[in-house]
Design a protein around this nucleic acid. Structure first.
Lengths: 196, 196
DNA sequence: AAGAAACCAGACCGTTCGGTCCAGTGCGGC
DNA sequence: GCCGCACTGGACCGAACGGTCTGGTTTCTT
């Protein structure tokens, strides 16, 4: 508990996050913007306004452990969101579009500096636990779509297209600094996914 | 002209590339595997078995200039390939599948360590000339698909889906260390693209 | 109230980074 | 034959990196 956690009556969320959460949040945003190797520990510390000791207290494994925690955080976040949407019995295409629209907001907020999770694969140290964490996250998302689509062979195909169009679309959006291309590719993919 | 450029009768390709080409080839492969910041100059030098002096002679701009050259190289390569396929009057979906199959070979050869060009965006220094080079490459490829599809609004949508499914599919393939997911997403996308 | 545990803070260290510099080297023209 | 020049080879440098270490402070337990 730090001073920033005290719930003051007039300023409810001055910095509502604890130290650990601040670190994860800063790390996630920076890693998705510049890749694992592109972010220095000092960058994360600057962004979260925390000293080095705090980081190595909460994450003795250093940079990589922090990165894994960040990936785990976003993985859970999206997974829970997917579960919620699918439980409303929405069609897969609709869920995909829903997700894409949230990505649009996220991209705009960050001024189109963010990259899809899979893009980080390129920037992660080869064959590391971090790479594994990214792969696990993707597999969970893929499985959500697949089972929601019926678990058939065709469902597998469609789930692949859903994720590929989303991740590829985010990349395109970042490139063009506009959400337009993301919406276009996801919409078309959703059409195909809802077919038959 | 170096010794490796001389066409000897009995050993045609002992080292068929000149110094500059060797550097670009090594750099491209490494950058696509580990991202801009993930590759050290010394890595490129080791891979190409060249000393530092050579690099800074051919690329006075250093690491970034080399990276830009590498991006330009692959951009031209793919662009020319697209132009050739489209000139055979193939349907866009067929060209996309053709391209995907070449990517499969390339991925297998590299043991699934390579990443699509756009994935490198995440790992490039923000707002640099390198970022611009990557964006330019993508826009050229996008334009090829778009004009081949008729240049209409619908063509634009389909071109986006083509590129997104390809880049996203490559990421999925790398993640799963299998070309299966790439083929699935691209095939489905091609079906949609050939519609109407 | 007091001692233990958890946590914050930042000076410090060895390594590695990208980049510079210059002394060789060997092939070309003259 | 020799001299110029494009290129190679690698020692070297300052900066920045990830990580360690040890005080000091807060918070929990009893």
């Amino acid at each position: 508990m730090t001073i920033s956690d005290i719930e003051t009556p007039l300023a409810p969320p001055p910095t509502p996050m604890g130290t650990k959460e601040r670190l994860v949040a800063a790390a996630l945003s920076l890693f998705q913007a510049k890749g694992y190797h592109g972010v220095a520990i000092s960058d994360i510390l600057d962004a979260s306004e925390l000293p080095k000791g705090s980081l190595y207290h909460h994450f003795p494994g250093g940079k990589e452990e922090l990165a894994i925690a960040a990936v785990g955080f976003i993985a859970d976040e999206v997974d829970a969101r997917l579960a919620a949407e699918f439980s409303k019995n929405k069609r897969a295409g609709a869920v995909l579009l829903e997700l894409a629209h949230e990505c649009v907001i996220w991209l705009q907020r960050s001024d189109y500096t963010q990259t899809p999770l899979l893009g980080l694969l390129a920037a992660s140290p080869g064959e590391s636990a971090l790479t594994q964490a990214i792969c696990d996250a993707q597999k969970r998302w893929l499985a959500r779509f697949e089972s929601a689509l019926g678990g058939t062979e065709a469902a597998h195909d469609k789930a692949c297209l859903a994720l590929a169009s989303l991740e590829g679309g985010i990349s395109l959006a970042r490139m063009s600094r506009s959400s337009d291309l993301l919406i276009r590719s996801v919409t078309l993919a959703a059409l195909r996914i809802n077919q038959r």
